[in-house]
Design a protein around this nucleic acid. Structure first.
Lengths: 347, 347
DNA sequence: CTCCGTCAATGAAACGTTTCATTCAATAAC
DNA sequence: GTTATTGAATGAAACGTTTCATTGACGGAG
């Protein structure tokens, strides 16, 4: 039974304790802590001494309460354990960490109600900003919700809503390069497997795909374009179905960062050889693509760069209170040809 | 210039606004919000109505301040973008999310001063608990720091300090199985590449390795045991060096969750075939191990289970205020033989 | 010697909740 | 008809900071 019975947890020190120990007021201690100029050197030393002796450290919750800023950034992704996205998270984390911000992560599993719920939670928690790749189509109701949202948002690889800041990969460019390459090798039946057509990455990939065909004066066969889902399992299913057709494609582009393993399993499940029976291109750099046999050609971009830019944008937005134009950054895509690509089999 | 000039951000609602709108006191609103029994149905309805109309949602920072609980768990890992660890994080996240806790993640890069700094930050932020796999040896000074730490900690795959809760994988068991298998195939020069010998996983792997040899009445050649580092690059370097020796090992066990790619690169860099020239075993399930050619045998355990257990332990510890014995859980390891393993080459 | 300006420290209010001790009203018991 | 007894709402005090308006001391100028 101590003299301050309210406190159960190891009697935490407050700024008041320091003030008493140093024989000054709490205001002075606060000014010392915040490196505020107008405090006498002698007093500053004395206070600092008390702080060190007592081992005091300020309560960030109280600071947040007072300053209306939590130095917390929320990050909502569909799956935080996708290596690609983890790379993004790490890069963003490092930038934020540098300036004393913490990262609150959560995964939505691509479910609408989870996205809503998580955004609500971040708002209640007074997060200073949010990085998010919404999986929910930005339609009327959800768009209104986002518009009413009181925290700066940076979109990750999404272009809508168009009034929000965003950092995106230039998937169309990557697709043009890859499909161009395949067409150049003589492929005419290049299948594109990707995700929900409402989502930016899928839309852009389809666009780039079409443009590559058009550039060669060819017509893209719509039956080869498969916007399925980015969620697990889809890549495997679509690939399996595709390869079971009478006229299977001679090349497959796996258009999702998380899709390669499924596609690979499906191809192998059919007993097909890469690239002799089917050429394969993946999306996003990965150890898997690099180390598998044969190594898989990839359309890649710098996920870490995406993370760094997104974090930077958010910090910008948080610091400058005035409303400025939405910012958009496009991160370039490259195409790396590897042994998974060859000329189409003569039929 | 609104009537409340202090507030810059879109004039957030407070419980007071709701109280005024509903014509009751703030205390009553609070009791409605917290589903506290003693409030008249009529009033409850009226308050709820006001809450809905205004679109009020409580400020979690103020609640945290008052309740001395932030519903936040910190997670400190050496690298958050290692797929294995990401799997752990996801599983822990899901458990915590279920009960309204948020996850604050950060990566220490295995650096001591970062670990200290991050722990300090979590303490200042009044996190309710911490999950951590310290990379710093738990020696006197650091151990004292941890002992003085005021927040419940659950260790991830670490056994020290021994007074802390921990959930660990049974690496020794996995190693016994793997080495036993290799010895059974006739291997006598099985190299073990792992991490810092001060760290639990490395220590346990070495122990299991030795035990497997002892079990067959064989002596383990100490020159084949390589506790290097779990940090990036180490696996590659050690493997390269090993394979360059006069009497290279006939089998290699990659004893780190993040080590397979480096080991694989080194083996391939030497132009060696798996398993004809050297057999290979990896630690931890991964798509890489599964899909690479040949598929790599693994010593694996359920990382998601580790995450779930750790999160559960932490919640237990947070909820029950009484001090109880440190809890320890060992997650079983299994050995999955794959085509990366064969009998040793006749020399 | 008085007055004024400057520099530094103080004290108290505020941030948005929860909760505890009160108050108030209504009902039950005598 | 008075007095307990209960039920339900109120008001104010925390929680630990920061900051703003005050206060006070000290010199320098008149």
């Amino acid at each position: 039974m101590t003299e301050r019975p309210t406190i159960n947890r190891a009697s935490k020190l407050t700024i008041r304790d320091v003030a008493i120990a140093a024989g000054v007021s709490t205001g002075t201690v606060s000014r010392v802590l915040n490196a505020n100029a107008t405090v006498h050197p002698d007093i500053r030393r004395k206070v600092q001494r008390a702080i060190d002796d007592l081992g005091y450290s300020p309560n960030a919750v109280a600071q947040s309460m007072r300053l209306r800023s939590t130095h917390t950034i929320g990050c909502i992704l569909r799956e935080i354990n996708i290596p690609q996205l983890a790379g993004f998270v790490k890069a963003a984390h490092d930038v934020l960490d540098e300036v004393g911000f913490s990262l609150l992560i959560s995964n939505s599993e691509g479910r609408k109600e989870r996205e809503r719920e998580l955004l609500g939670r971040l708002s209640r928690r007074q997060a200073d900003g949010v990085m998010m790749g919404p999986y929910t189509p930005i339609a009327g109701e959800f768009e209104a919700f986002l518009r009413g949202f009181d925290i700066p948002i940076v979109l990750i690889d999404r272009d809508r809503p168009e009034w929000a800041d965003a950092v995106m990969a230039d998937h169309a460019e990557g697709m043009r390069l890859a499909v161009g390459h395949l067409l150049g090798l003589g492929h005419r039946r290049v299948a594109l497997i990707t995700g929900e057509s409402g989502l930016y990455p899928a839309r852009e990939r389809v666009r780039g795909y079409r443009e590559a065909y058009a550039l060669r004066g060819l017509d893209a066969d719509p039956s080869l374009i498969h916007p399925g889902s980015f969620l697990p399992g889809s890549g495997f299913r679509i690939t399996s179905a595709l390869l079971g057709q009478r006229h299977p494609p001679t090349a497959i582009i796996s258009g999702g960062i998380d899709m390669l393993s499924g596609v690979l399993r499906a191809v192998r499940g059919r007993g097909l050889r890469i690239p002799e029976d089917v050429s394969l291109v993946a999306s996003g750099h990965s150890e898997l693509a690099e180390l598998v046999t044969p190594p898989i050609a990839v359309i890649g971009w710098d996920q870490a760069e995406v993370g760094r830019i997104a974090a930077g944008m958010l910090l910008d937005r948080i610091r400058s209170d005035e409303v400025h134009e939405p910012q958009r950054v496009l991160v370039p895509n490259e195409f790396i040809a590897r042994a998974s690509i060859g000329p189409p089999r003569q039929t």
